[in-house]
Every structure is written in C-alpha cells, then in structure tokens.
C-alpha cells in the first residue's frame, strides 16, 4: 500500500499539471492575440480578486474575526511595491515582497491592539484603519497625494498573476489544513475553550490577520503593476465591501467557495461595468438575500471537491449497511 505521503504527492502532481495546462493555454492565446484584451483584463481581475477573497476568508471565515478594512492593506501593498519600482528601480519580485511585507507589518500593528475587541467593534476598528491608511496616503504628496500615483511600470502579466494566485491559495490551504489552521478555526468556534485547551489565541488571531494582510498587500502590488496608476480612492471601503461580498457569498470558511464567488462576481461586475450604480444595488441585494436565506453562503464551511459526489454515494451505502446490521 502506498503511504499517505506518496499518495498526496501523486495527487499534487496531478493538480499541478492541470494548472500548468490552464496557464499554458491561456498564455498561448494571449500571446497569439487570440484572446480579446477585454477577457484578458477580466482574467487578471479574477486572479487579483481570488487573492483578496481567499486572504480575507482566512481572517473572517476561518478565524471568525470580522475585518472590513481589507482594501487598506491592499493599498499599503500597492503603494509600497510601486515606490520600490519607481523610486528605487529594484526588480519586480522585490517590489512585490516589500509591498506584501509592509502590508503584513500594518496587519500586525492593527491586529495587536484591536484583536481584543468583539466582532462588531473589531469590524469598525478595521474599517477605521482602512480609512486612516487612505487618509494618510491622501496627505503624502511624495506618493502622489489625492491625485494618485502614475507611471508605475507595467510589470505584472498573466503569468505572474496566475502563479501568484495559485501560490496564495496553496499557502492558505496548507495553513488551514494543519494544526495551525485548526488552532485558528477553534478560536472561531469557541474562544474560551480554545484558550483552555492550550491555544495561544492572541498569537493565532494576529497570525491570521498578518497572513491575510500579507496577501492583500501582494494583490495590491500586482494591481499597481498591471494598471500602472493607483489612486487612494481605488482602495476605499467600497473595495473592502466588494471583497467582503465575495467571501460571504462563497461561504465564510470555504476556500473553494471564495474562489468560485470571486470568479462569478468579477464576471458579473464586468458585465455591469456601464451601470456602476446598478451593479452596487445588485451587490447590496445579494448580500441581504444571502444573509436572510442562506447565511452560510454557497459552500458553508465545506470545500468543493469531486469527492463530494463520491462521498455521498458512500454514505448511502454505509447507512444501508447500518440498517442491515440493526435488523
């Protein structure tokens, strides 16, 4: 019998091949001019939104905190990374890393003092931090102030964004499905019990917040280097709400849910681009309707997998078996 380790490796290589194929086909289509630039733009947006949604889900879904200031961390990453390429002329990788790390540091700074707060108070505090970050950017002329920062080199492309999206999902997936992830989830389930069972709840709350902010910063860096101009208003709380809708719709605590929701909502917003107000009315109604009729979102805390279908049939067998014994 193959060991668990070998079986896992086999499956992982399979997934990697599928991903490489998806990337290769689309890359070929973009380079060959087959893919309409409009579709390319949307694929890029989908990637960035997946990074944002999955990283916010770690904080809101898995850890059970409630952050509505995610765009603020994205802003830190965007401006941080842009300054590295514009002013220091360093390579793109370093720019992305610095942007993400700056966002992570802000995450720690925000997290340490505020994570003691209860759900809704924390929500307001994160919203406040997002606004403070935006307010500071508006007031610093060196980084463009209220007019924004332009002339950022267009270094991000499909390849970068695709593989960094994969990396983000992988890191967060692996984190969540480990003892550290279980510690993180236990805080959502019952903080007092988690603490009594030896979980350093403060550490894991700050950790979730930091990892979440890190990837929001990464998304910001990618955004800045794809759209070559950024403005403080790009990262206002409407952006935070956008990300929040994805997480809530997909299911708080489901990574695949966030991915599905990010894809769906990016496509919906693209098709409603000409009707900005209508798009937000639809978003608003979506939020209300989900909360009233399906508060767990599309996926709840479950993950989408092909096994879901297999497992169901197995369960049925098991139950029939059970009744047979019972008789």
């Amino acid at each position: 019998m193959m060991s668990m380790f070998e079986r896992k490796i086999g499956r992982q290589i399979g997934i990697l091949l599928v991903l490489a194929a998806v990337w290769g086909v689309i890359d070929f289509m973009i380079k060959g001019g087959i893919l309409n630039p409009y579709y390319e733009l949307n694929l890029i947006l989908i990637g960035i939104n997946i990074i944002l949604a999955v990283s916010l889900n770690l904080i809101n879904g898995f850890n059970g905190q409630f952050s509505i200031g995610h765009a603020g961390f994205m802003a830190v990453g965007a401006y941080g990374a842009a300054m590295i390429t514009i002013k220091a002329h360093l390579p793109f990788v370093i720019a992305l890393l610095v942007g993400a790390l700056l966002a992570a540091i802000c995450g720690i700074l925000v997290g340490l003092p505020t994570l003691r707060l209860r759900g809704d108070y924390l929500a307001i505090a994160t919203l406040g931090f997002g606004e403070i970050i935006r307010g500071l950017i508006v007031n610093i002329d060196y980084i463009g102030g209220a007019y924004g920062l332009s002339g950022i080199p267009k270094l991000a492309n499909w390849t970068w964004i695709f593989w960094l999206t994969v990396l983000t999902v992988l890191v967060i997936w692996n984190f969540v499905n480990s003892t550290h992830g279980r510690a993180t989830i236990s805080i959502r389930e019952n903080e007092i019990a988690a603490e009594a069972m030896g979980i350093n709840t403060t550490k894991y709350k700050v950790m979730a917040f930091t990892i979440g902010s890190l990837f929001a910063g990464l998304a910001g860096g990618l955004h800045a280097h794809y759209f070559y101009t950024i403005q403080p208003n790009t990262f206002n709380f409407l952006k935070s709400f956008d990300i929040l809708v994805m997480v809530v719709l997909g299911g708080q605590g489901s990574i695949t849910g966030s991915i599905i929701a990010a894809i769906a909502l990016t496509i919906i917003s693209a098709s409603l681009q000409k009707f900005a107000a209508l798009r937000l009315v639809i978003y608003a109604l979506l939020l209300i309707i989900i909360m009233l009729f399906r508060p767990q979102g599309l996926m709840g805390t479950k993950e989408f997998s092909l096994k879901m279908f297999r497992k169901k049939s197995k369960d049925k067998e098991g139950k029939q078996h059970g009744t047979a014994i019972g008789q």
């Binding site: 809704d120 929500a123 709400f241 939020l287 909360m291 009233l292």
Partner: peptide
C-alpha cells in the same frame, strides 16, 4: 428575521441595506 442569527450576519445585512440605499438613490 435575523434577530436570533449571529451578530455578524446582521452586520453584513446592515452593510447590504446601506449599499442599497446609497446606490438605489443614485439610480
């Protein structure tokens, strides 16, 4: 309808109502 639901659910709904009023008015 959400009075006995988790407080976060009510908070998200409130955000939804807020967006609805803003952009509904804009329309």
């Amino acid at each position: 309808p959400l009075r006995n639901a988790p407080r976060i659910a009510a908070l998200i709904t409130a955000i939804g109502v807020s967006l609805f009023l803003e952009y509904g008015m804009m329309l």
